[in-house]
Design a protein around this nucleic acid. Sequence first.
DNA 1: CCCCCCCC
Length: 380
Amino acid sequence: MDEIIEIYKKQKLSGIIRQEDFLERVGEKVNQMGGLCDNRTAAMLVAHDLGAGDTGEGAGNEVHKVADIAPGTGNVRLIAKVMTVFPAKEFNRNDGTIGRVANLIVADETGSIRLTLWDDKADLVKTGDITVGQTFQISGYVKEGYSGVEVNVGNNGVLCETDEKVEASVASTKISDIKNGMGDLNLRARVLDIADIRTFNRKDGSTGRVTNITVGDDTGKIRVTLWDEKTDLLSGLKINDSIEIINAYARENNFSQQVEVQVGNRTIVKKTDKEVTYSENFTPISDIIPGESYSIKGSVSGIGGRHDFTRDDGTENSVSNIYVSDDTGRIRIALWGEHAGLIDEVDIDTEVEIIDAFSKSGFNDEIELSAGNRTRIVVL
DNA sequence: CCCCCCCC
C-alpha cells in the first residue's frame, strides 16, 4: 500500500483526487484487470486515467505508434497486440539474485516491435498470463537491443491488458530487400525446396545439426538455414507450404558469399493460411554462362547412361546425364547422386524443370549444368 | 557453427 501512496504523492494527485478515493480506484482497477496488474501498475494506470503527466516511465500521455519509435525516443507509451511470445529465461545477477527476462513481439497498425520484459513482468510470460492475441497498454523505455530497437518494460514500466481494439500489422520484409546483417527479420514465403538434415562436429566436440530450405515470395528466393533443434521443424513442412518466419536474421554465407536467412533459437517458423505465390525465373538455355546458378525449363532431348564411380576421397557416387532443350538451345545436365535415377523416369520429350543447377564449362568446353543436392527437379 | 559444384 505504501508504494501506491508514494505514487499518489509523486504524481501530485492531491489536487485531483483524495488519497482514499485514489486507493479505492486502484483496488477497482486491480479487480478489473483480473489479476494481470499488480498494485503498482494499477496505480500508474489510474494516475494516467486521471490525467497525471508522469505515468509509467515518465512517458507522458502521448500514445506512441510503433512506427515512430526510434533509438532516441526515450520513454514511450503504446497500445499494441501480442504477436509472438518467446519463452522467459532466468539469469544470475552479480548481486546473487536471479533475474528473469522474456521477449514479446507486439504490433499496432503501423508495425511491430520487440518488447523486453524484466523480472515481475517476465514472470507474466512464465505463468501464461501473456499470450498471443492479447492487447496491452505498455509503458517502457526504448533501447537499442541485440536485434534492433526494442522497448524495455521493467519494474517501473506498465504492462496491462486492455479491451481496446488494435489492428496489428507485422511488417514483413520482401526477399529482395533482405540485406546482410539484418535482425528481427519477418518473412512470409513459400517453401520451394527442403534439404536433408546434416550433422557435423563443432570445435568444442559437440554435435550440431543443420539443414536448409529454399523459400520464395513475389520478389525472389533465398536460402534459409536451420540449426540444431530448429531442424525438427522440417517434419512439419512440405514443399509449397506458405510459412511465416518471425525474428530471423540475415547473414552472408562465407562459403557461397550469398546472404541467407538464419533460423536461430529465437526464431519462430509457422505455417500460414495466407498463400504466398512464387514464380520461378527460368533462364533461356542460350543465356547460360558458366559459374552461376540457374533454373531452366524444357523437354528432354537426350538420355545418357548411369555411371557409378569412386571419388578421390574414397566416397562412392553416381552420375547420369540428360539433355534438355528449349526454344533457344540445348544443354547437357549432369545428374549427381540421388538425381541420377531421373533417367529411368523420363523419356524423350518429357517436360522437366531443373531448378537451381550450377553451370560450368565441362567436357569438350561445352557449358553444362550440374544438378546436385541443391537442385530440385520437377517432371511435368 | 555446414555445404565446397564431384564422372567420362
